[in-house]
């Protein structure tokens, strides 16, 4: 297809474009949850306070909109306060993994050779074990706490970032504009980080958004299995484990955090996809 025709086509409203309404809703939900993460402890300071008198109230009870669990903890307060534990970890995982991915992926993809080989085998090794299994085994056997779990997940998430950055860098590095920079005798580090990396950003950002969603799922799965988050902590995954037994008496104790996890992960996924479509369209000439 000729260039002008291609440009005309590029301006077409893409039929595959996600409905902006869903994107706006997702952003709104993410905004609300971000607010809870930042101020949840101020809104619900007594979330983990137990009360034998108030144990196992159904939703709609006076003073307890969503009822209480068997320890008498208010489900709404728990949910509000649990946002921080459920989300801070995943966001840190996505950021840490992005950083590792950029560093190792760029170096491997641009320099190639032995460094690439070593990094490649390292990612192969990490990829050969299912992420959740590795996390359960390592965090469980070693009794890792919250932040150790974050570090572990960064390590386990990084191969996908490394591979994506590496593939993007390799694709860009073969392009003539990179060779033109070599013809100007610019240093390798300068070419990597000023010429090549800017063209890979859109991939990185998109993948990090998707990583937030998957890290949220992984984190809550771990705490559901009793790994990573200490018992008694306000955390959505933890709420599901604890609430399973009292599902008949107070379904809200399970349904609310479960729907929140699904909703927030879906929203992050949707925004990630949307970013991917829009950023890559402007990033490519």
């Amino acid at each position: 297809m000729s260039s002008t025709e291609a440009i005309v086509l590029a301006k077409l409203p893409r039929s595959r474009r996600r409905h902006p309404v869903a994107v706006w809703l997702s952003l709104a939900l993410l905004g609300l949850v971000a607010f809870l993460v930042l101020f949840g402890n101020l809104i619900a300071p007594d979330a983990t306070a137990q009360s034998i008198l108030d144990s196992l109230l159904p939703p709609g009870s006076p003073g307890h909109l969503l009822g209480t669990d068997e320890l008498g903890r208010d489900v709404l307060d728990l949910t509000i306060a649990g946002a921080a534990s459920a989300l801070v970890g995943p966001v840190c995982v996505a950021l840490g993994s992005m950083l590792l991915g950029i560093l190792l992926g760029t170096v491997a993809g641009y320099l190639r050779g032995p460094i690439d080989f070593i990094i490649g085998r390292w990612t192969d090794l990490l990829f050969s074990l299912p992420l959740l299994l590795a996390a359960i085994v390592v965090a469980g056997v070693f009794g890792a706490g919250y932040w150790m779990t974050v570090l572990l997940l960064i390590l386990l998430f990084s191969p996908s970032d490394i591979r994506i950055v590496r593939a993007g860098v390799m694709e860009q590095a073969a392009r003539p504009f990179v060779e033109a920079a070599q013809m100007l005798s610019l240093s390798k580090a300068r070419i990597m980080f000023t010429q090549v990396l800017p063209n890979v950003w859109s991939l990185v950002i998109t993948n990090s958004m998707l990583n937030v969603a998957f890290a949220l799922v992984a984190f809550s799965s771990l705490s559901f299995l009793g790994v990573g988050v200490a018992p008694g902590t306000a955390d959505w995954g933890r709420q599901l484990t604890d609430g399973r037994a009292i599902m008949i008496d107070n379904p809200a104790a399970v349904l609310v955090p479960a729907l929140l996890i699904i909703g927030v992960a879906s929203a992050a996924n949707l925004v990630g996809d949307w970013l991917g479509q829009n950023l890559t369209r402007t990033g490519r000439s």
Binding site: V217, R244, M247, L259, I262, A265
Partner: peptide, 18 residues
């Protein structure tokens, strides 16, 4: 696809169970 990818298996399981 989006919900399926985002929903943790245990959360879906608990909803179905309920």
């Amino acid at each position: 696809g989006i919900v399926g990818l985002s929903a943790p298996t245990f959360a879906v399981g608990l909803l179905l169970l309920y």
